[in-house]
Design a protein around this nucleic acid. Structure first.
Lengths: 247, 247
DNA sequence: GTCTATAACGAGATAGAC
DNA sequence: GTCTATCTCGTTATAGAC
């Protein structure tokens, strides 16, 4: 009996995966707005009503794809964080980890442009993201925070100035997402998070066509500077004339 | 006779504008992927084939909307550039202009979120932008370059270091889009351009929901820092402890 | 010449009866 | 699950009004 249920569950998992794979293929071809349960079913040789046993609505299928995409890029970032500069606590090691995480995000985006567009592009009309997407959506940001936290603990940070105007926001942000960090870096971290995806989006969405050519080097250099903007110290790249001083 | 032609042309302009207005309404409701010539015609009380007198295809209508959007945000940026700190040549005036241009872009995006998504969000599936969109698409970037050029001439720049790896790219970029500027700032300017839209996109596309609350102040502070990353000097905001030194 | 209306095509989605 | 009748879509050809 339990073997039967095991087989059933295995089949269910397989079919669910096949549905999501086909949906991802349609995402690439037609875009999220035109994702259609019927077309997915047709392509799989199923009948549309059968899909509703796996996903109760088109929006639920969309949500599953979105959560998968966030988890996928989040895992890429986490792996890069774990792998890069495995046992260095010098300032340069932390900056190298920051750059490695950013490059992992970019590499994932280049490898999965349509899933990237699904989560970081225009919202899908008529779809509102449920609570279930919030946690996966914050994974990359949490990795960035972790890099800065480690650096703060092991190598120190160059604290950016904090204006009085933003102090309440900075203290709230720091308390919520990085209790171990000084409030002064909270705003720059969130800004760097958005700016990192600005760089990736412009490349993925074609704004760099006919503008930037040496894209990998351009990205690497830009995110290294971004790392310095959150207070990371050190020189990860080749031959810099010096660090940046804020105070 | 010329009066007749004048009347005809006026009518043509009016109908063209009505078509684009209705198309923009549908953009907001259904998204660019589902923009339908027939629905536009129906809503206007016309027959679909009549639209082809004004736009030879659905893609041409999309192109017109895209060009309009780029021109609209570009004009907002240019106006802010012309208006902000009208006769100051001190470092702070240039930084103030930079911030004003960025805020104008953000304000435009908040006022026209769907047009923003059309040009800076996910590409429309099956649509490839023609050459005609290139010039309007670069207007905002050219304003940012102009701000830095003025600052370079009138107040000087804090030149960021230029790695050997990126020197060819920087020299090519500088030659193409800012012949008056030192190559060292070319890469940071392009990066700041992308990062500026990263900040705006995250706000418009909802990534800041439940994260950033004081959004105007957050944006202002972040783009001021972005201005410093391209070498602008001075302190535009209130009470900063000091400038940033690169060398 | 400029415009609109009618009709049609092939492709695809959709709803409902069976 | 299947089939069918009825929608929508972009696009074109054609005919007629101004």
């Amino acid at each position: 009996m339990s073997a039967i249920r095991g087989a059933r569950e295995r089949a269910r998992i397989e079919v669910t995966a096949a549905i999501k794979d086909e949906a991802r293929r349609q995402l690439a071809a037609e875009g999220a707005a035109k994702l259609s349960l019927r077309a997915v079913a047709r392509e799989l040789g199923m009948v549309s009503s059968a899909l509703y046993r796996y996903f109760p609505s088109r929006d639920e299928l969309l949500t599953a794809l979105i959560v998968d995409a966030y988890d996928s890029v989040g895992e890429a970032a986490e792996t890069a964080h774990r792998t890069a500069a495995p046992d260095g606590s010098a300032p340069a090691a932390h900056l190298a980890r920051w750059v490695a995480v950013a490059c992992a995000v970019r590499d994932w985006a280049l490898a999965h442009p349509h899933e990237y567009a699904l989560i970081y592009g225009s919202p899908v009309p008529g779809y509102t993201a449920p609570q279930a997407t919030i946690a996966p959506a914050s994974r990359v940001g949490l990795v960035l925070v972790a890099v800065v936290e480690d650096a703060h603990r092991e190598a120190g940070l160059a604290l950016p100035p904090l204006t009085e105007e933003l102090r309440p926001e900075a203290e709230r942000l720091a308390a919520e997402l990085a209790p171990g960090l000084p409030p002064a870096v909270a705003v720059p971290i969130v800004a760097a998070w958005a700016q990192l995806f600005g760089l990736v989006s412009f490349e993925i969405f074609g704004q760099f066509d006919r503008v930037v050519e040496a894209r990998a080097a351009f990205f690497r250099q830009s995110v290294e500077e971004l790392g310095r903007s959150v207070g990371l110290l050190g020189t990860a790249g080749p031959a810099r004339q010096g660090g940046r001083a804020w105070r």
